[in-house]
């Protein structure tokens, strides 16, 4: 019956465990035989601290950490790939896995401490809240007012086509699950999204698979503006190397806030160890202040609260844009807006 769910046409997110394309992979040897196999969309540079923290708690456990795209992750878990824990920033795909019965239920004191909006049916657990932001190169914006809303950003881009031509970047929503989530949620919430898309589409926009590369290109000066970047990555990068070249802008009219979620796949062989890892993540997620951790906690810090936008709700509505028909029509609209000859 469970396999039957595969019949759902997710052909556009086709990926199989066999063809799983690893972006990164690392193995942390522990003292014992148990191996916790984690599949994640989080880059090692932001996530290694968590793995080390877990190994400090449970030194006997080895960790096998694979970084894949969110679509690949979704496909792999659907195919029953042998992972014990799936961490993804694409909430909609994670939710769909839980809804379709590909996740194991897990319950502990740590997960019960989570607020209701941060878990669903004891299958899926949120442990960070990460906003989508605009990252700009200050050099490109020299002499221009810094936009605070999409309307102002649209105006700035429209008025300076020469300066921004070929220098704006965003997720390629066709390949990035997180980019698709951000785009659909934004399109649903504000009309300004499509106007902005039209303007950016005329500026020969660059498309990326991942936040990291976009931020790299802004830092290098190849891009003037990266739209809808994961704020946590950007902040992390800024902390490492800034020199005032890169600045994070938070749109005041609307801001997406994503929950990074964890689930234990149905095929997990070490669900108890995976549960322990979820405990660590959710405990860290419940911390009051950011501290030294690369990813922000669930408790929304002050500047997030000031925008007045809560995180994207973990619920069945997330499945709406995953529907192939909806996806097809959204993508065609998106292509119309962003890929103008």
């Amino acid at each position: 019956m469970r396999r039957a769910c595969l019949a759902i046409a997710l052909t556009l997110i086709a990926a199989t465990a066999a063809a799983l394309e690893l972006e990164d992979h690392r193995y942390y040897q522990g003292t014992g035989d148990t191996v916790l196999r984690i599949v994640s969309t989080a880059d090692l540079e932001v996530f290694e601290d968590y793995l080390i923290a877990f190994q400090a708690e449970r030194p006997n456990i080895s960790i096998d950490y694979s970084v894949v795209s969110s679509a690949d992750l979704h496909g792999a878990i659907r195919d029953g790939a042998a992972f014990d824990l799936a961490l993804s920033s694409a909430m909609d795909l994670q939710f769909r896995l839980a809804n379709d019965g590909f996740a194991q239920s897990y319950r502990s004191q740590a997960t019960e401490a989570l607020p209701d909006w941060a878990r669903w049916r004891d299958l899926i657990f949120a442990f960070t809240t990460e906003p989508a932001v605009v990252v700009i190169s200050t050099r490109h914006f020299e002499g221009l007012p810094l936009p605070a809303t999409r309307q102002e950003l649209t105006a700035v881009l429209r008025d300076n086509p020469d300066r921004f031509n070929g220098a704006v970047g965003t997720y390629d929503v066709r390949v990035s699950g997180l980019g698709y989530l951000f785009a659909t949620q934004e399109a649903r919430s504000t009309d300004a999204y499509w106007r902005l898309s039209e303007v950016m589409g005329r500026l020969d926009p660059q498309f990326y698979c991942c936040s990291g590369q976009m931020i790299d290109d802004v830092t290098d000066g190849r891009l003037a503006l990266a739209y809808n970047v994961l704020g946590s990555y950007a902040a992390d990068r800024l902390a490492q190397e800034s020199g005032g070249e890169v600045q994070i802008l938070r749109m005041q009219d609307f801001g997406n806030v994503m929950l990074r979620t964890a689930l234990i796949p149905e095929a997990a062989e070490e669900p108890a160890v995976a549960g322990a890892f979820i405990d660590l993540l959710t405990k860290l997620g419940m911390r009051e202040t950011n501290g030294d951790w690369p990813l922000p906690p669930l408790s929304q810090n002050t500047d997030l609260r000031s925008t007045g936008f809560g995180p994207i709700r973990l619920g069945p509505a997330l499945m709406v844009y995953l529907d192939p028909l909806n996806r097809r029509s959204f993508l065609s609209e998106w292509e119309d807006a962003w890929e103008q000859p």
């Binding site: 379709d100 069945p316 709406v320």
Partner: peptide, 22 residues
């Protein structure tokens, strides 16, 4: 035949509880 699943059609289903939706 074309259709577009309205967002609200699914978000209202979350009102009752944490139930799976098909």
């Amino acid at each position: 035949v074309r259709l577009e699943l309205p967002y609200s059609a699914f978000s209202m289903l979350g009102a009752i509880g944490e139930d799976r939706v098909f």
